[in-house]
């Protein structure tokens, strides 16, 4: 798949992609209470990159991402595993969810938790997996 020559798509992609990525982070963070979550957010984020890829080509998309998607994959799995252990340190069974409430300036509280870390892991794995496949497929396309 070579990059598209449509000016409209190129321009639209340039504006839409940051919004989509922002939206994916939004979905990720609110996922525990409202519709959303790591899996959906990961799909949205990879959709954003794929849209960019369709309009500007694989090479541009790769350099935009800066890291190899395979590294994202590995990082996601590591996040997922890392969320398992904090419970052990406070003496709970493995994988018990841990919550930390941090008071924020201005009266709010920041809720941090191991499920959030886990969700970030899911997010990164999904993005990494899809982009690994899409990049590999479209790379083979442009090489052939």
């Amino acid at each position: 798949m070579n990059e598209s020559n449509t000016l409209i798509l190129r321009t639209a992609a340039l504006f839409l992609m940051p919004l989509q990525l922002l939206f994916s982070v939004f979905l990720l963070l609110r996922g525990h209470d409202e519709p959303g979550g790591g899996f959906i957010a990961g799909l949205v984020a990879s959709g954003a990159v794929v849209l960019f890829l369709f309009s500007y080509g694989v090479r541009e998309a790769r350099s935009l991402l800066r890291v190899d998607p395979r590294d994202l994959l590995a990082a996601g799995l590591l996040f997922g595993l890392a969320s398992v252990f904090p419970a052990l340190l406070v003496g709970d069974p493995l994988m018990t969810a841990q919550w930390w409430y941090l008071p924020m300036p201005g009266g709010g509280t920041l809720k941090l938790s191991t499920p959030l870390i886990f969700d970030i892991g899911v997010y990164l794995t999904v993005v990494g997996a899809i982009l690994t496949m899409v990049f590999a497929l479209s790379q083979a396309e442009s090489d052939a």
């Binding site: 525990h32 790591g38 997922g80 398992v84 969810a97 938790s113 886990f118 899911v122 997996a129």
Partner: peptide, 27 residues
């Protein structure tokens, strides 16, 4: 689980071990 979205709570908390397995399969 401090969450109101049951789907997500099941995924990342109640059945997190299953999800962990699934992301490995995905990878």
């Amino acid at each position: 689980a401090h969450g109101r979205n049951i789907v997500n709570v099941i995924l990342v908390d109640f059945r997190a071990l299953d999800t962990l397995g699934e992301i490995f399969v995905l990878a």
